[in-house]
C-alpha cells in the first residue's frame, strides 16, 4: 500500500467529514437533510476566492465575511424553501425537492456570475501547498494543517452540544413537542441551525479551496461524498462522520490508484451501499425506536 495515497485519502476524507458535520448541524434539530449543502460549500469557496484574489481582502476578514454571507443565504433558504413545506406537514418530504431546487438555482447563478473557470486560492501564510519532503509522503504543510483543523473543529462542535443551547438542540431532535412544552422554540432553533449549518459549509469551502480550487463543479461532488460520510458514520454523529470521512477518502484514493480514477465514485457508492445494507443506522449509531 502506498503511504502517499493513504495520506491524500486522509486529506480528502477530512473535507468529506467537514461536509458531513455541516449536514449534521443542520439535520439534528430539523430532520431536514439539505440537498443544497454541496452548493453552499461551493459558494463559500467562490466568495472567499473572489474576496481574497480579486478584492484583495485580508485572509481573516474574507473568512468571516464569507461565513456570514453564506450563513445568511442558508437562512434565506430556510425561510423560502423549508419553513413553508414544514408548516404544511411536519412529516412530509417535500423539502427534498425544494432544497434540490435551491441547489439548482445557486449552482446556475454562481456559474453565470463567476464563469466555469476554476479560481486558484492560496493558503494563508506561512502555510503553502508546496509538497514537503517527508520521506515516503509528498504532503504539503497546508494539508497537514487541514487534517488537524478538522479534528479540532469536530471536537468544538461536539463540545457545543454539551452546552445548554446544544442540549436544546438534542431535545428538539428527540421530541419536538416535549421540547416545545419546555419553552424551546423549534422554529428559532431551525433558523439558527440553517444559519450555522450553512456557515459551516462555507468554512468547508474556504478550507477546501486551496486544494480543490474554487469552481462550480465542487458542489455536486462534495454533496454526495459528504452524504456518504454522514450516512456511513451514522447521521447526527460527528465523530462517526470524521472516521467515516477518512474511510471514504482512503477508499476513494486506493480505488483510484489501484483501478482507475474513473472508478472513484463507483467504489464509494459500493462502500456506502454495503454499510447501509448491513447496518442501516451506519457504523457508529444505534437503532432508535419509532414512537406511535
Amino acid at each position: 500500500m502506498d503511504f502517499d495515497v493513504v495520506a491524500h485519502g486522509i486529506v480528502a476524507g477530512s473535507l468529506y467529514a467537514l461536509v458531513a458535520v455541516s449536514f449534521n448541524i443542520l439535520y439534528r434539530p430539523t430532520n431536514v437533510f439539505n440537498f443544497a449543502q454541496g452548493e453552499l460549500v461551493m459558494l463559500g469557496a467562490m466568495i472567499f476566492a473572489s474576496a481574497t484574489s480579486l478584492a484583495g481582502m485580508p485572509w481573516f476578514a474574507a473568512f468571516v465575511a464569507t461565513l456570514v454571507a453564506v450563513g445568511l443565504i442558508g437562512l434565506v433558504e430556510e425561510r423560502i424553501a423549508v419553513a413553508p413545506i414544514l408548516a404544511r406537514s411536519q412529516t412530509g418530504t417535500g423539502w427534498v425537492i425544494t432544497t434540490l431546487a435551491v441547489s439548482l438555482i445557486i449552482s446556475n447563478l454562481v456559474g453565470r456570475f463567476w464563469g466555469p473557470d476554476p479560481i486558484l486560492v492560496k493558503p494563508p501564510e506561512p502555510l503553502s501547498m508546496e509538497a514537503l519532503d517527508l520521506g515516503p509522503s509528498r504532503i504539503s504543510s497546508y494539508e497537514i494543517m487541514l487534517v488537524i483543523v478538522t479534528i479540532v473543529l469536530v471536537a468544538i462542535v461536539e463540545s457545543a452540544y454539551r452546552t445548554l443551547k446544544g442540549k436544546a438542540v438534542m431535545a428538539v431532535a428527540e421530541d419536538r413537542e416535549a421540547a416545545l412544552l419546555r419553552g424551546i422554540d423549534p422554529g428559532s432553533l431551525r433558523r439558527w441551525s440553517f444559519f450555522l449549518g450553512a456557515a459551516f459549509a462555507a468554512m468547508t469551502g474556504v478550507l477546501a479551496a486551496p486544494i480543490l480550487y474554487a469552481s462550480t463543479s465542487l458542489g455536486p461532488d462534495l454533496l454526495l461524498k459528504g452524504f456518504a460520510a454522514a450516512a456511513v458514520g451514522s447521521i447526527g454523529n460527528n465523530r462517526g462522520a470524521l472516521i467515516a470521512g477518512y474511510l471514504i477518502g482512503v477508499t476513494e484514493a486506493l480505488g483510484a490508484s489501484l483501478l482507475s480514477p474513473g472508478y472513484q465514485e463507483a467504489v464509494i457508492f459500493i462502500v456506502v451501499l454495503t454499510v447501509l445494507l448491513l447496518r442501516p443506522q451506519g457504523l457508529f449509531g444505534s437503532s432508535t425506536a419509532r414512537t406511535v
Binding site: G94, V102, I105
Partner: peptide, 15 residues
C-alpha cells in the same frame, strides 16, 4: 437559463 428555470419552477410549484 434552462436549469435555473427548472429550479425556480420546482421551488415555486412545491410551494
Amino acid at each position: 437559463w434552462r436549469m435555473l428555470i427548472y429550479g425556480g419552477l420546482l421551488l415555486g410549484l412545491m410551494l
